[in-house]
Simulated scan of single mutants.
Amino acid sequence: MSHSARFSNSYSGDWEVYVVTSGVPSLNWPEHDFGRSMPVPTLAERTEALAGLGYEAADGAAWQWQELSSATTARVRLLAALDVRPIGGAS
């Protein structure tokens, strides 16, 4: 089963990664807070954080980035998504 990992700079500015799991309330999604706003966590750090949550990138998956903002002068919030699966292929 494939899930989606999300990597974002939260509204407080700290970077976080979490895994969207269907049928589970968002408050219970697995998450990791990097506890910093700079520097942006590297690919290796994101991979390690996902492994700590029990997930790995799905075959052929790559991070897809997008910018979110409510106005042209507002602070931009970055969001990336990656298809992931439980480590070992268990669902």
Rank of each mutant, 00 (worst) to 15 (best):
R6I: 07
L50W: 02
V19G: 00
A74G: 09
L53Y: 02
H3R: 01
G60W: 10
E45M: 01
S26F: 09
P39S: 11
T42Q: 02
R46Y: 01
A58M: 13
G52I: 09
L53M: 13
A80Q: 05
P30D: 05
T21S: 03
L27V: 14
S22N: 07
A58P: 00
L78M: 11
E48M: 05
G23T: 06
L82N: 05
G54N: 00
R36T: 15
S22Y: 02
A81C: 11
L78Y: 12
A71K: 04
S22I: 09
L79I: 15
Y11P: 06
M38W: 15
G88S: 07
W63G: 06
H3N: 06
S69Y: 04
M1E: 07
W15G: 03
V40W: 00
V24T: 14
A90T: 14
F34R: 05
A81W: 07
L79Q: 11
S22C: 06
R85S: 05
T21R: 03
G88P: 04
G35S: 15
S37T: 15
G35Y: 00
A62P: 02
A51D: 06
S10E: 15
S2G: 02
T72F: 01
I87P: 04
G54W: 03
V17S: 09
D83G: 02
F34C: 04
E67M: 11
V17N: 03
D83N: 03
Y18E: 13
A90I: 15
S2N: 09
V24M: 13
L53C: 03
R85M: 15
